[in-house]
Structure formats: C-alpha cells, structure tokens
C-alpha cells in the first residue's frame, strides 16, 4: 500500500478522482428526483447547465465573472504586497512590532467582511469597496507568515553573514528574503481563496456588477439554478487564483525537495 510506487499511486488516484466526479454528477442529476427534492431547492445538473447557457447571453455572465476576477486579482495583489511589506518591516524592527502589534491584532480579530457595508457607504457602488475588503482580508495571513519567517531565521545564519561583514541590506536580500519564500507562499495560497470571499461579500452588499451581484439577483428572483451557476463560477475564479499561486510557487521554490510542494 504505502510501498506502491508513486506513478501507480498517481494513476490510481486520478482514476478514482474521475470516478468520484462521475458519481457526483450522476447523483446531482438524478438524486434530487429520486429523493423527491423539488428542483427549486436542488436543481438537477441539466437545469443548472441550461441556466448557465441562458445566463451567458441574458445576464452577461462572462462580464460579471470578469469583474469579479479583476477585483479578486487587484485585491489579492495589493493585499499581498501590503501584507508582505508590513511583515518584513515588523519582522526587522522589533520596536515597530511592539508598537503596532496591538492594533494589528485588533484588526485581525475584527471580522473583515463586516467592513464591507462601511466601505460601500464611503466609496459608493464602485469596484473599490470590494477590492478594499479583499485587501484587508488577504493582508493578515500574508503578513503573519512573513513576519514569523523573518523572526525565525536561524540566528547562526545571520551570524555567518555578519562574519563575512554583510550589511543589513545584504542580510535581508541574501538570507531573510529568500528564507521567507516558503511561508510567504503558504500565506499567498490562503490569501488567494480569501480574496474571493472578500470580493463577493463586497458585491453582495451593494452594486450591480460581479458574481456577488448575480448571487443576490438570483436569490431575489428565487432562481436557484442561477445561484448554483454563480457559486460554480466563483469557485472557478478562486480556483484559477489558487492555481496561479501554485504555478508561481513551483517556479520560485524549485529548490525544495519535490514532495514538499503540491498538496493543499
């Protein structure tokens, strides 16, 4: 079992994965009917597929998906940059960390999505409040991971660099920065999925664009298939963002033993 060679395990796993998918889709199509669940509660697969096609033309589904995706990307990139920046800054300056940590902790405990209505009140029904919620929600996992990684660099490594007369900047760029890459990417993975949450909540609260809006719209019309389609599209957007991080991670962390990559 554990001794199986990785290739066989891979092939077997993929086959099982496909089988699970088929079973799931079949259950979705015929399960509700067999169990007597009305289609306005759980619409069968075919109804959702039909709705998907209908929404492409009638509801500009791709436009809304594009808006959400753009907000997710903007929020994710800005939130990550900001999180990384503060992570490095606080990591290198214990004074700054002591001074700012209570406020950062308070912000971290506050549920970020609760800020959405406030941001909409400030900035109106534009894309900005959505991006802002995403920034806020992405910021913390990235910052905390970077901060911890800078803090936990082996002091002997720093001493080694110092013994070669490294400057503070050299210590940062040659040791602390590269050492922070694995935790940074762990933070980015979390951030990429959270960014979608932030954007959707923002869109749910106000505006007439994006998948969050379609979600609210479908709910208002009691159009269950529409809600299903929108959830699927949101998952797709999140999945692509996550995949983007993974692809980048594989390139940046190419030096790690193979098994350490992948997984979730």
């Amino acid at each position: 079992m554990n001794g199986a060679n990785p290739k066989t395990a891979m092939r077997r796993g993929t086959a099982m994965s496909v089988a699970v998918l088929i079973v799931f889709l079949a259950a979705w199509q015929w399960g509700p009917g067999l169990l007597g669940i009305p289609s306005f509660i759980v619409p069968p697969l075919s109804a959702v597929a039909n709705e998907f096609v209908r929404m492409l033309s009638r509801n500009a589904l791709m436009f809304h998906t594009g808006v959400t995706a753009a907000e997710v990307i903007a929020g994710f990139i800005l939130g990550s940059l900001l999180g990384a920046f503060f992570g490095y800054m606080l990591g290198m300056s214990p004074t700054a960390e002591v001074a700012l940590s209570p406020y950062i902790l308070a912000l971290q405990i506050a549920p970020k999505v609760a800020f959405a209505p406030l941001f909409v009140m400030w900035m109106g029904f534009t894309v900005y409040p959505k991006i802002l919620v995403a920034i806020l929600i992405v910021f913390f996992p990235v910052m905390v991971n970077v901060l911890t990684s800078v803090r936990t660099v082996d002091p002997d490594l720093i001493n080694l660099a110092r013994s070669f007369k490294a400057t503070r900047a050299q210590i940062f760029w040659k040791i602390e920065f590269p050492a922070s890459m694995p935790p940074l990417f762990a933070g980015l993975r979390i951030g990429s999925t959270l960014a979608v949450v932030g954007v959707v909540v923002g869109e749910l609260v106000g505006g007439n664009m994006g998948l969050g809006y379609l979600l609210a719209f479908g709910e208002g019309q009691a159009n269950t298939p529409m809600v299903f389609v929108t959830i699927l599209m949101l998952t797709l957007v999140g999945g692509i963002a996550y995949l983007g991080v993974i692809v980048l991670e594989i390139r940046v962390l190419h030096y790690l033993p193979k098994r350490a990559l992948g997984g979730f």
Binding site: D154, D156, L157, L160, R162, S163, F164, K165, K174, I175, P178, M181, Y255, L256
Partner: peptide, 20 residues
C-alpha cells in the same frame, strides 16, 4: 572590533542556504 575578513568560522550546523 567586529567581524574581520581574515577570520572565518565553521559550526556543527552546515548553515547551507537551501535555495542556493
């Protein structure tokens, strides 16, 4: 007075940088 180019040390830990 501080680190000196004429001295180098080596420890029990190899302190190799995994990304290099």
């Amino acid at each position: 007075e501080g680190p000196n180019a004429h001295v180098a040390f080596m420890l029990q830990k190899d302190l190799l940088l995994p990304w290099r």
